[in-house]
Design a binder for these strands. Structure first.
Lengths: 191, 191
DNA sequence: AAAGTTATGTCAGTGACTGACATCAACAAA
DNA sequence: TTTGTTGATGTCAGTCACTGACATAACTTT
């Protein structure tokens, strides 16, 4: 007989998302989440820094995937590196993950403080990407600009991928957004 | 004889920044801020939605300036529109504002939840810019991409402008960052 | 068997934020 | 002048996120 049910962190994650979807983020108390999986509020805060963080797991892996993709990419200009990274990491978002992503995103978009947290995570990704690009001997400000561009493309593509009726894979959407981006930058008539 | 000292909002803003600088954001209590200008905690929350918001006034004006700049800019491709908008709005950041900006930014960078709030404000700016670009008959996703790019350039330039030892005006820094950005997009050898 | 480790519970406390109601000078209408 | 009416404030009680300190019990190591 075990002392505690294992996988407390995951159980809390699942229960939290479920409750957030059902009754909204603000209407759900931490005590409620914990109680629903047989734990206490205090224990929740030993697994997650705060009430929002429970929605943001597994980002380190995605970030790591981006970073290694850039480290391993064939030599080329910055935009080629991030193109490679985007393509490589798109595989993390298969069709099976789409429904869950939609659900999660719906919760986030419904609450300002959750949007804030997501933006912070994306900013963290941009910072990590910039570091990785500097490792590839790309100097600032090009590294920062390329990293921010990569995150922008990812975020825009992800938003489209999540949209109802969208059937293309994330990689396909990203490719189109990247093309659009190049057009944007090129069609500028500048002295 | 007046019933209340006027300008409560501004007095709270000034006192808050001062206290945040002196003792840090988290170490400062809302009651403390209010008391320091002869008001109560409850009244603070009638002027500001939360403890963070007191640092983020006047953004509507900047956002409005960006939007009108885009609305009034001469016809051209998206990147030209945002170049115009950046140049126009740079005048809001004269040399006299530099010290204050440094001080404020230092407080924000020292605290995660303040960083989150700032990112949310920038995201709001991006949304407003995208709307303005659509008004100029630029279709999505180009509008969104251009708007995000504009905000990125602004943020990177602003960060540089704030840096110790930087003497160029914001407009100059922005121009250089934009040039860098075009180079980035152009030096990509793509089939 | 004794000692240490680990995930949890308990409890008391702080501080952000809210709703309800009271106050009271200033101003307007009667 | 008297009588509302308004608007920024105060007061107070309450909820909830989050934290520190300490206890507990099962499993592990020595």
């Amino acid at each position: 007989m075990v002392r505690w049910e294992p996988g407390a962190t995951d159980r809390l994650r699942v229960a939290a998302l479920e409750l957030y979807v059902e009754q909204g983020f603000e209407q759900t108390t931490v005590g409620e989440i914990a109680k629903s999986v047989g734990l206490t509020e205090r224990t929740f805060f030993r697994h997650f820094a705060d009430k929002k963080e429970v929605l943001f797991g597994g980002e380190e892996q995605l970030q790591q995937a981006f970073v290694t993709a850039i480290a391993d990419a064939p030599a080329g200009p910055p935009l080629e590196l991030i193109t490679t990274a985007l393509t490589e990491t798109a595989q993390y978002f298969g069709p099976e993950r789409r429904t869950w992503s939609r659900q999660r995103q719906q919760v986030i978009q419904a609450n300002q403080s959750l949007k804030e947290r997501e933006l912070l995570k994306l900013a963290g990704l941009a910072t990590a990407l910039a570091d990785a690009l500097r490792e590839r001997d790309i100097e600032d400000p090009a590294a920062t600009l390329a990293a921010e561009t990569c995150v922008t493309v990812f975020a825009v593509a992800f938003g489209q991928w999540i949209t109802d009726g969208e059937t293309r894979s994330l990689a396909e959407v990203e490719r189109d957004i990247l093309t659009e981006f190049r057009t944007l930058a090129l069609e500028t008539a500048e002295p």
